[in-house]
């Protein structure tokens, strides 16, 4: 098993947000988490990535217990719904940022950013500022940046919510393609059951996962 979660409890501001959540994901699987907004899916993501403290329970990735490992050492990347591109950097610099952290020199990391730009079909836009991109393009940059980090696991938080229908179809195919090419293990949150059916190996219903508290 790639990711194992057991009896996870998460508390925010002294209110229990998530109660006894358990799930398991296999290596290379594409799993969708379907449920209405506000049912705790995003919080689950944040708990897996380590940016929300866990009250009790266990998160295991590649056989290693993650609970006490800080977010930046977990190798779990979230692509957030609101993209969160860094406005002080160009498109290329955004994508190259995970490599910059690893200490890879500027020339190499920008070359890698070019390759990733091609993977998400945005060749030639590397020097743009992020606010010059459309919503769909920004989503692709966010995806490329996540891939640059070479994560052990990818968490996609409603990746299509900012896009119109035509773009969605493109993005679906792109994400599926990248999932296979990069041998990713992907967990995606969506409220669209059809989308989940189209894309995933397995669907987990939010209501079965989250016991309302």
């Amino acid at each position: 098993m790639k990711l194992g979660i057991k009896d996870l409890n998460v508390e925010l501001n002294n209110t229990l947000i998530m109660k006894d959540v358990s799930l398991g994901i296999e290596e290379g699987e594409f799993v969708s988490l379907v449920g209405p907004s506000g049912c705790g899916k995003s919080t689950l993501f944040k708990a897996i990535a380590g940016i929300v403290p866990v009250k009790s329970g266990e998160i295991v990735l590649d056989g290693e217990k993650l609970n006490d490992i800080p977010a930046y050492k977990r190798g779990v990347v979230i692509v957030f719904q609101d993209m969160r591109l860094f406005p002080n950097m160009t498109v290329s610099e955004n994508i190259a940022y995970p490599l910059k952290i690893k200490g890879i020199d500027r020339k190499k990391r920008l070359a890698r950013a070019e390759e990733l730009l091609a993977d998400v079909q945005l060749e030639g836009l590397g020097d743009r500022r992020v606010n010059q991109l459309s919503g769909g393009q920004q989503q692709r940059v966010a995806l490329a940046r996540a891939l640059a980090a070479e994560p052990k696991m990818m968490l996609l938080d409603e990746p299509f919510s900012a896009l119109d229908e035509e773009l969605r179809e493109d993005m679906r195919q792109l994400i599926k393609k990248l999932h296979h090419e990069f041998h990713m293990t992907t967990l995606m949150v969506t409220h669209d059951i059809n989308e989940a059916r189209l894309m995933s190996d397995r669907i987990i219903g939010g209501s079965s996962l989250f016991h309302y508290v």
Binding site: A49, G50, I51, P70, A71, Y72, K73, R74, G75, V76, V77, I78, F80, D82, R84, F86, N88, Y97, P98, I101, K102, R145, A146, A149
Partner: peptide, 21 residues
Amino acid sequence: DRLELQAQVLGASPARSFFDV
């Protein structure tokens, strides 16, 4: 802290993510 948290999940330490983004 939205940009900072994004930088952290991409591998930046809390201090670095603050200064970078």
